[in-house]
Simulated scan of single mutants.
Amino acid sequence: MTSRVMMISPAISPALREARFDDGSPLDATGAARARSAAGSLRAAERTLVSPTPRCRETASALGFDDTVETAPTGLDVGGWRGRTLADVSAEAPDAVALWLADPTAAPHGGESVLRLCERVTVWLDEVAQLSGRTVAVVEPEVVRAAAVRAVGAPESAFWRIDVPPLNAIEFSGRAGRWNVTFGRPLGHDEGTTH
C-alpha cells in the first residue's frame, strides 16, 4: 500500500515576520487572506490532521478544514526561548545558540532537542503510513523539516538546511517504511505542477 501525506506549512504570522520563536500568535491579516485564497486548491483527502498551534489551526480553518478533529505533532519546544527573537537570544547567549544549531542533541533552551523532535515525528509518520488513503496535515515548519530529514535518510544536522516557506505543500509518498519527498509548492497552484 502506498501512503500519501501532504504536509502544509502554516500561513505567515507576526512571530514569523519578526524572526521570533513561535509564542502562540495567530496569523496576521495577510497570512489569513492568502490561506483563504488557497482554499479549494487541494484534492480531497481521507483525513486532515492539524498541529495544535493557533497558526496551524487558523490556516486549516482558512483552507476549509473546519471539521478537523485529529491532531498532528506540535513543533519544536524551544523552552525559555519561546516568544524571543533569534537575534536577542544570540546576543544574550551566542554559545548556546551556536551549540543548538550545530548539535542536534543539544537543548540549551530547556526544551526539546532536534533529535528528539525527529524521533517524535518519525513515530507519527510511521503511524500515518498505516492509514489508508491520502492525508493532509497542517503542521509547523519544524515538523516538515524533521519528516524530510528522516524520509531521505539525512543526518539530523541537515535539519537547519531545509527551508519551509509559509503556506507551502510538501508531499511524502511511500511504502514499507521508505519515503519519497516532493519539496514545496505554494498553495493555490495546480497540484499536478511540480517545481
Rank of each mutant, 00 (worst) to 15 (best):
D95E: 15
E46V: 06
T105D: 13
A96C: 03
L115G: 12
R178V: 13
A39Y: 00
P104D: 09
R55Y: 01
A106G: 04
A72Y: 02
T48Q: 08
E127C: 08
E112Y: 00
V121W: 03
S51E: 00
P54T: 14
V5A: 12
V149L: 11
W124V: 11
A107G: 02
A44C: 04
F65C: 01
T71F: 02
H195K: 07
A45C: 12
V97Y: 09
R20F: 10
S41W: 04
V50I: 12
A72T: 01
S51C: 09
A62R: 03
S90K: 15
A38R: 01
W100A: 11
E119G: 06
V123Y: 01
L63Q: 00
R82I: 08
W179P: 04
T135N: 03
R57Y: 00
S9T: 14
T85K: 07
A15G: 14
V69F: 01
R55Q: 10
D66W: 01
P52F: 06
E119R: 13
V136A: 06
D67L: 11
P104V: 12
V128L: 07
G83M: 12
I12W: 03
R161V: 04
W179L: 00
D88P: 00
G111R: 07
G110M: 08
D77Y: 08
W160N: 08
E112Q: 10
R120L: 06
L125E: 04
G24N: 13
L187Q: 10
A158W: 14
C56R: 03
F172Q: 11
D66F: 01
T105S: 13
L115C: 06
R150W: 12
A62D: 01
C56T: 15
G83Y: 05
E119N: 06
L125W: 07
F183I: 06
G40D: 03
W100R: 14
I170R: 08
F21M: 02
A44E: 12
A15C: 12
R47L: 02
E46G: 15
G40F: 02
D126M: 15
D126H: 14
R36A: 13
I170H: 15
L117G: 08
P10Y: 05
E140C: 09
V97W: 06
T74V: 10
L27R: 08
V5G: 11
L187R: 02
I12F: 05
T105V: 09
S113R: 14
S90T: 14
A19E: 15
E171R: 11
A32N: 04
S25R: 07
R57I: 01
D190N: 09
T48C: 15
V143S: 04
A15N: 09
L131I: 05
T122Y: 02
G110F: 05
R57T: 00
L167H: 07
G24H: 11
L167T: 06
E119V: 07
L117R: 06
R20W: 09
R134D: 12
F159M: 05
P26Q: 04
V138W: 02
A151Y: 07
E70T: 06
L16A: 09
A129H: 08
A147F: 04
T71H: 01
P155Y: 02
S132T: 15
G24V: 04
A137V: 09
G75K: 06
V164D: 05
F21D: 10
I162K: 05
R47G: 12
N168P: 00
L187N: 10
A151W: 11
V123K: 02
A45R: 00
S90N: 09
H189F: 14
A29P: 07
A19Q: 14
